[in-house]
Amino acid sequence: MAAGGDHGSPDSYRSPLASRYASPEMCFVFSDRYKFRTWRQLWLWLAEAEQTLGLPITDEQIQEMKSNLENIDFKMAAEEEKRLRHDVMAHVHTFGHCCPKAAGIIHLGATSCYVGDNTDLIILRNALDLLLPKLARVISRLADFAKERASLPTLGFTHFQPAQLTTVGKRCCLWIQDLCMDLQNLKRVRDDLRFRGVKGTTGTQASFLQLFEGDDHKVEQLDKMVTEKAGFKRAFIITGQTYTRKVDIEVLSVLASLGASVHKICTDIRLLANLKEMEEPFEKQQIGSSAMPYKRNPMRSERCCSLARHLMTLVMDPLQTASVQWFERTLDDSANRRICLAEAFLTADTILNTLQNISEGLVVYPKVIERRIRQELPFMATENIIMAMVKAGGSRQDCHEKIRVLSQQAASVVKQEGGDNDLIERIQVDAYFSPIHSQLDHLLDPSSFTGRASQQVQRFLEEEVYPLLKPYESVMKVKAELCL
């Protein structure tokens, strides 16, 4: 049975990233139509530049190519590739079939990587351009969430054990800070992308030097003109047959890092959902379990974690691919890159769409948070109580021993009897502590235990987050809708 299948058929496997999760716009960027249309555009740009620099290419040939950029006979191309065992030459023939007058000058002087690699770089750039505003929107939604809850005390956790208090907004800023680093890295790697350009079979530009009869300047002009037509500021000066596969490492490393950030955020949300302090959106008709109707599973956060793990592992592909590119190139890269580049971007696209949807509907339960604080705060307040007693004339050592005994009794009630923490009640009825009984409410005010959390939130948002989001103001209103 021949390899390949009808990918629109229910009898043929289709990647869930495309069929179930990723956005239509990201799927289109990695589609065959987008790819092969870009090949034709690159052939047109090459012909236009070659004509401008004096090669015998007519206006009629150029116009014929322009008129057929979208006229792609995919069936013919597939048949040609089956016959020739070469995808680029299959599309040269297919393009030439609908451009008979231009057929002889299509791909003039070029090698397969002229269309293959340059198209990949265009796709990487455009895919990054799709991700950047999506990530900015996630940051914006979380920034709104953090600002609104900047002063809401909550129990902090280290080692997932109760620690000092923080605020809900401050905790959210930990998430935002990681995503801001990801946004900066995505922008950097996007701006650092260079075009492969017009380089020939081993990167020496020998074929173009021959076409222009040894004119170095025209060869350099050709490279520059096509690079500018493709919208790049610069091209690699040095290439082998391909652009260095280190570029793929750079791009997928940034995406993998984004995956790590999203995994951490969504894990926190899942843990908070278990504590009943916070939940992701839950639709009115949504079913959490087929057997347990009360369940409210954090399905979206779980999906993000599941896909983020996949995204983090994909960076190993370009690392290994770059390491086995012998001399000017081997074909070890080809099949692998067809999979890992598309999957990385479709996965990143999915987790950003999902995280935006989550961040637009996060639900906080202040009463649950308050109750958990009441359970733990008495123990945390013991040092403040000791200091207040010393100020009232008591002995630190005597007070410490009193607190120690009462704390152990209260802990026994919590752990052995399943009761509430009654340390404060014990202190309130103990005559030894009568000098500070009137101060206990103040000493137990949760806001006095959150330090500068709310001020940190305000400063972080104003100095770091809002300036970073400013270039994306025009796209901030787009909502994230999930079908599944």
Rank of each mutant, 00 (worst) to 15 (best):
M292G: 02
I403T: 09
F74V: 13
L362E: 03
L258C: 08
L440V: 09
K295H: 09
H93D: 10
K199G: 11
I176W: 02
E60V: 08
V92R: 01
G240P: 01
R372C: 01
S151K: 15
D11W: 14
E81R: 06
V168M: 08
P293W: 01
I106P: 01
R452M: 12
D441N: 02
G4M: 13
R141H: 13
R141S: 12
F195V: 07
L222S: 01
D268Y: 02
G361P: 07
G394P: 13
R171P: 03
K477Y: 15
Q320E: 04
H159A: 00
K233E: 07
D248L: 07
Q63N: 09
S31V: 11
G451F: 04
P298M: 05
D120C: 04
D216G: 15
D32A: 11
E279V: 03
A342T: 12
D32F: 07
L186H: 11
P281K: 14
L272W: 12
I105M: 13
D87P: 00
M299P: 07
D73L: 03
G361Y: 12
A388W: 06
I369N: 15
H263V: 06
C173G: 14
K229W: 04
R452Q: 09
A150P: 04
M380Y: 02
E277A: 01
E401K: 14
K66G: 05
T94E: 14
L252W: 06
Q61G: 12
K35M: 07
A411R: 10
H107L: 03
Q439P: 06
Y21N: 14
L128P: 00
I62Q: 04
V138S: 09
E473M: 09
R37S: 13
G169L: 05
M299K: 03
I436M: 08
E302I: 00
M89H: 15
P318R: 00
V198F: 06
D120L: 12
R20C: 04
K284Y: 15
V363D: 10
E343I: 02
E60F: 11
A102I: 04
I424D: 08
K224I: 06
D144T: 11
M316V: 09
H263G: 06
L128M: 13
L255F: 10
D215V: 09
V315T: 14
A18D: 01
K264G: 05
Q416R: 10
Q161C: 03
I339A: 04
R14A: 09
F212Y: 08
P10G: 13
E277D: 01
Y432V: 12
L131Q: 11
Q221N: 14
T382R: 02
D430N: 07
A256V: 05
C180N: 07
E360A: 15
D182F: 03
P318K: 03
T111F: 02
L155S: 04
S31D: 15
C340Q: 00
D73F: 11
G361N: 09
G361S: 08
R329W: 01
I403D: 01
V414C: 00
V429D: 07
S253G: 09
Q210Y: 00
W43M: 03
F30S: 04
L155P: 04
L42S: 07
A273D: 05
Q416F: 13
R83C: 09
R296A: 07
A291Y: 06
V29Q: 07
E148C: 08
A273G: 08
F95G: 01
L165Q: 00
L311Y: 09
V390D: 04
W43D: 06
A150V: 08
A453E: 02
A410T: 03
S323Y: 04
E425C: 10
G393L: 09
P293H: 08
K218W: 14
K101I: 14
L108K: 03
K284C: 05
D59F: 06
S207M: 04
L222N: 02
N71Q: 08
E463D: 11
P281V: 11
R459H: 13
R33Q: 13
A392D: 01
R337N: 01
V92K: 02
S407R: 00
L314F: 13
D87N: 14
L272N: 12
L186M: 12
W45R: 05
F160I: 09
E50P: 00
M181V: 12
R234L: 06
A110E: 02
A344N: 00
V92F: 00
H91E: 04
P467G: 10
T111S: 09
D182W: 05
P318W: 09
I105G: 04
Q61C: 11
V413G: 06
R190L: 13
F208I: 07
P133L: 10
T382I: 12
S15R: 15
D59K: 08
P16T: 09
E481C: 14
L484E: 13
G419L: 13
D178G: 12
D73W: 07
E462V: 07
S31Y: 01
R309W: 01
N336E: 02
W43R: 02
S207G: 13
M387H: 09
L331A: 03
G109H: 04
R426P: 00
Q210K: 14
F327Y: 13
H217L: 06
V478L: 11
L46P: 12
C98F: 06
H97S: 04
L69G: 14
L209I: 14
P293G: 09
I72M: 15
G418K: 00
S434P: 08
M89Q: 03
K264V: 02
V168A: 09
E81D: 15
D398K: 14
P435G: 12
W43L: 10
K229S: 14
E277Y: 00
G259K: 00
Q325C: 11
W39S: 08
L121M: 06
L174R: 04
T244V: 07
K224N: 10
S334Y: 01
H263I: 09
Y365F: 15
M299N: 10
G393E: 09
L423V: 05
R309A: 09
E283P: 01
D87F: 07
K101N: 01
F28R: 10
L484N: 08
F157A: 10
L69H: 07
R234A: 09
I424R: 12
P10H: 12
L152R: 02
G200T: 00
N185I: 09
A392R: 07
L155I: 12
Q285C: 11
S15Y: 06
V363M: 14
R33M: 05
L469S: 14
R188K: 12
V247L: 14
V457Y: 03
F433G: 04
D216S: 09
V88T: 09
E302V: 00
L222C: 08
S15H: 15
V368H: 03
Q205E: 03
V189F: 10
V138Y: 03
A136G: 07
V254D: 07
P133M: 06
A22C: 10
C27A: 13
V478W: 14
S290T: 07
R20T: 04
M278L: 09
T244H: 15
L55G: 01
E25C: 06
E462S: 12
L174N: 15
W326R: 03
A136K: 08
D59H: 05
F145A: 08
L84V: 08
R234G: 12
S67P: 04
A77R: 02
P24V: 11
K82A: 08
L377W: 02
A273C: 12
P435D: 08
S151D: 10
M316K: 02
N336T: 12
P446D: 02
R196C: 13
C173K: 02
E473L: 11
T58L: 08
E360L: 12
T38G: 00
F195C: 15
G419N: 14
R329D: 00
T202D: 10
L209D: 11
F449I: 03
S454K: 14
